[in-house]
């Protein structure tokens, strides 16, 4: 049994320690907002927060999350920064297919908590691990500035 806290709820999971957190979330806990994209930590679709830090859940063994706080997209509405990011995403109309956007929002939220006043270069660097095949990058940049309250840049 591995115990971990997911979105402030305690879970006891009977899964192998090496199972990636992604599959534990999706197939065992049935939290499907976190997406599978590559399985190698290359695309960012599976990004969640582990004690507040953005991690790629597809390459994070569930054992590495034991005793820690896992936060997923499903809890962003109750996160002060996360909810601002979500609102900005809607205002700007970022999403096209939307599949990568949970991961984008998780990365952007963790990033904005570290850097409240980001430049375009900061964003390009911090968001470089999240692929969007629809090509919504310009709107992601605009939305991050907007969430940061940098209206003049948005």
């Amino acid at each position: 049994m591995i115990s971990l806290t997911i979105n402030d709820q305690q879970h006891e999971l009977d899964v192998p320690e090496q199972m990636p957190l992604l599959w534990a979330l999706r197939d065992v806990v049935n939290l499907t907002g976190t997406k599978f994209g590559c399985g190698m930590g290359l695309c960012g679709a599976c990004t969640v927060h582990l004690d507040g830090a953005a991690v790629r859940s597809c390459v994070t063994p569930v054992a590495a999350a034991a005793g820690k706080h896992v936060t997923t997209i499903e809890a962003m509405a109750t996160d002060a920064v996360g909810s601002k990011v979500q609102e900005a995403w809607l205002d700007v109309g970022v999403a096209q297919c939307g599949y990568c956007q949970a991961g984008q929002i998780m990365s952007a939220t963790a990033f904005l908590k570290d850097n409240a006043n980001p430049s375009d270069d900061d964003i390009a660097s911090a968001m470089g691990g999240n692929i969007c095949r629809c090509g919504t990058y310009n709107r992601i940049r605009t939305a991050i500035h907007r969430a940061a309250g940098q209206e003049e840049q948005a």
């Binding site: 939290l31 499907t32 907002g33 976190t34 997923t72 997209i73 499903e74 962003m76 509405a77 979500q86 995403w89 809607l90 109309g93 999403a95 939307g98 956007q101 949970a102 929002i105």
Partner: peptide
């Protein structure tokens, strides 16, 4: 955006 809110909330 019909699916906008669902997308940003997972």
């Amino acid at each position: 955006a019909v699916d906008g809110e669902d997308i940003v909330s997972g």
